[in-house]
Simulated scan of single mutants.
Amino acid sequence: MFSVRNSLIAAFSLLMAAQAGHACQNTYLYASDDGVNAYADAYTGDSTADGGTVDLNLNNPSQLVAHDYEEGLTYVAAHVSWPIDQYGNWLATADYQSFTGVGSWSQSKNFPFTVRPAISVSGGNTIWYFGGQNPSGYTTSAGLTSSGGNRTQWIVTYGTGKINLSTTSGTQTTVTSTSDIALQPNDAQVKAVVDNTDSIPVTFTRKTPFKAILSTHYHNCPNPGSWDDTFTYVVQDNFFASLPANVGVNENWTTDVVVDYSPNSWYRPNTTNGMTSSSSFVDEITVGFPFVPQPECGGTNYAIDHWGQEWRIGSQVSGYGRRIQTDTLARYNNHAEHQDVVSPNP
């Protein structure tokens, strides 16, 4: 005999069977790009299904660009790809359906993602500044290339006045440092903008020779009537680290000779330039017979002459490169001194 109670039990049993039949239902949707193409993948899995479908669409910011419709049994997967022709907000959508003997189910998913222009860097992210010089062993510029081609606009996102761009539009630009001295790493940043979409910015650390530290001073009397003073300095960059490679160093006279004792036949020598060695340079001052008055290693100390001197790093030509120190080179009858030393002094 049929009863309402039996009917309810039967309906409940069918509902539980349908729910149990879809207990293993699973859907997946993911989209991304590799800088060249955009991709989307979707699948559905239902171990109890008799069949299923996946309808996958990929849209760039303007329109539908790729579509894939797949049918299968317990597992169905779809895949699409498309060359990146626009930057901005892309969208992947997927519609899923699954069929069993007791019913069917359907589901839709969206996956929005942003396709950004990519920047490749040549030369690295550390830029050195040597007062306009480009010594071997140091990177003084970095080249940037945008995947967005000639639609690219280059923008300094922070660090205005700290770096220069060779151009602000086009596929490539070159980044150089200004004379401004960085007080911390990563103080300048550049991004590419294409189709009103920003790239991930590129960050730069700017380094420069900064100061000279007196390491040793030796006074010597090699022969009667002569003396020799040798000053050795260690060069540090603006983060107080030694220079990583040998580089040109030069001295330059910044004033005329001021005579402190007359008459005298002492003459000012030519500047002596060279290369640093292990981030150090040497200033050797030698005077010998037959100068008048005659040099000596003892006796009463009195001044002979003095003049302005500066030291620059980045070139072996006097007056070129980043200045790191100024001083007064003073000669006495029995020794030499570096006076009024100012370092750093860019």
Rank of each mutant, 00 (worst) to 15 (best):
S136Y: 09
P112L: 06
F291T: 12
Y30K: 15
G72Q: 03
I324V: 09
V115E: 00
T326L: 03
Q189V: 01
T272C: 11
P185V: 08
Y43N: 11
I119S: 07
D85P: 08
D305I: 06
G248T: 02
L214W: 06
S215F: 11
L8Q: 11
N6Q: 14
T160K: 15
S169V: 03
F130W: 10
L14K: 14
S166T: 07
N220G: 10
P224I: 03
A38L: 00
Y218K: 15
T178F: 05
N150Y: 12
R268T: 00
G103T: 03
T197V: 04
A11Y: 13
P290F: 07
D95L: 10
G51P: 03
P290T: 07
T100L: 11
S199V: 00
I84A: 02
V202E: 10
P244T: 00
Y261F: 08
G274T: 00
Y233G: 08
L14Q: 15
I181D: 02
N220K: 14
T254R: 02
A10M: 10
G288M: 11
V102F: 14
Y87N: 11
K191R: 15
S81M: 10
D95M: 11
A23Y: 12
Y28G: 03
S120C: 01
N250A: 08
Y96R: 07
N26Q: 15
P344Q: 01
Q25P: 00
A78H: 01
T126I: 09
G103M: 05
I163C: 04
I181M: 06
A77C: 04
S141P: 01
G288N: 12
A118E: 12
Q133G: 02
D198S: 13
T53W: 07
L144W: 02
V36H: 07
